[in-house]
């Protein structure tokens, strides 16, 4: 039996999260194939074929796969699922959208956001905002799995030379249409792939004030993140949110500014290698997880830090 990983892409390029999912697939121990479904996406299939360790790439091209609509993608995965014991995707919003639909069509459970493979039917996954790690064993013949990105280093994007096999498209289910996407444009690193993240919370106070967070981030070549409170208050877009229900990150350095450290936020960043917090409330829970804590006014300390980094 082998493993099929769903590639995530925009028809032109592979989303790097796919590499982490492939790494988890390789950890299961069986041969790993990758499914690339899209429109005009041969370049993506070629990129997938170059991933070290991939055996074969299944390429399916049709207009109704262009935007990874789950109503079309899930039946396709079921159609090609026959030889595979494990069906994997990265736990991105795309993977989370599609894979439970695949699992239900196959009448199997999904194992969400695995962080480690114990054996071919047993996996570890965080529950309760990461305050508990559960080891779960599946009794299903097929295992549908999403992979927590921070738990696996990406598989090397080059070195492989897998064959690309064209597969016939299934019919358009006709249930859904893609209308539009408003993507946040930024020259900064992508949040889940960044080595350094500077995040702001409610304490930052306004959208305009986020400029001091961004200035520090730019000085460090960092991505900008935020707590739920800052997103709910409209300081920054939703895709900045780090936490239990936002993005889960584990950079080398995470700098939390004006973030108190609710368990829902800690769930998204506590696996970072080094955590720094800057907060005026020295009782804030964030100090309990920070390697280095600075008690102070963020409006004074953050610009001072940005300036001092030039020295």
């Amino acid at each position: 039996m082998s493993t099929l990983v769903l590639a995530e892409h925009n028809n032109a390029a592979l989303v790097p999260a796919t590499l982490n999912a492939v790494a988890a697939g390789l950890a299961i121990g069986a041969e790993v194939d990758v499914l690339v479904a899209g429109e005009g996406c041969r370049a993506v299939a070629e990129a997938a074929a170059a991933i070290a360790g991939v055996r074969k790439v299944l390429l399916v091209e049709a207009a109704h796969y262009a935007h990874a609509l789950p109503e079309n993608l899930a039946p396709l995965m079921v159609q090609v699922a026959g030889p595979y014991e494990h069906l994997l995707a990265a736990a991105t919003t795309t993977g989370k959208n599609v894979m439970p639909r695949v699992a239900a069509l196959l009448d199997v459970a999904q194992i969400s956001e695995i962080t480690s493979v114990v054996s071919s039917d047993t996996f570890v996954r965080p529950i309760y905002a990461g305050n508990v790690m559960a080891t779960v064993k599946s009794s299903d013949a097929k295992k549908v799995i999403t992979v927590r990105l921070t738990a696996y280093d990406p598989a090397p994007a080059s070195g492989g030379s897998a064959a690309i096999e064209a597969v016939a498209a299934a019919a358009d289910a006709g249930l859904s249409l893609w209308v539009a996407e408003e993507l946040t444009k930024s020259d900064r690193p992508e949040l889940t792939a960044a080595d350094i993240i500077v995040s702001g919370g409610r304490g930052v106070g306004s959208s305009e004030n986020f400029a001091i967070i961004e200035a520090l981030a730019d000085k460090l070549g960092a991505a900008v993140g935020a707590s739920r409170a800052a997103v709910d208050a409209g300081y920054v877009p939703n895709d900045y949110q780090v936490g239990q229900t936002g993005k889960v990150v584990a950079p080398t350095l995470y700098i939390a500014v004006g973030i108190s450290g609710a368990i829902q936020h800690l769930a998204g960043m506590k696996d970072s290698k080094v955590i720094v917090c800057i907060n005026k409330d020295e009782e804030a829970p964030i100090f309990g997880v920070a390697d280095y804590g600075l008690v102070g006014d963020l409006f004074k300390e953050v610009p001072a830090m940005t300036a001092a980094l030039d020295k």
């Binding site: 919003t93 795309t94 859904s176 893609w178 209308v179 996407e181 408003e182 939703n238 895709d239 993005k247």
Partner: peptide
């Protein structure tokens, strides 16, 4: 709400 921003479907 998607990873890169907002997507609208019909």
């Amino acid at each position: 709400e998607i990873d890169g921003g907002i997507q609208t479907v019909d």
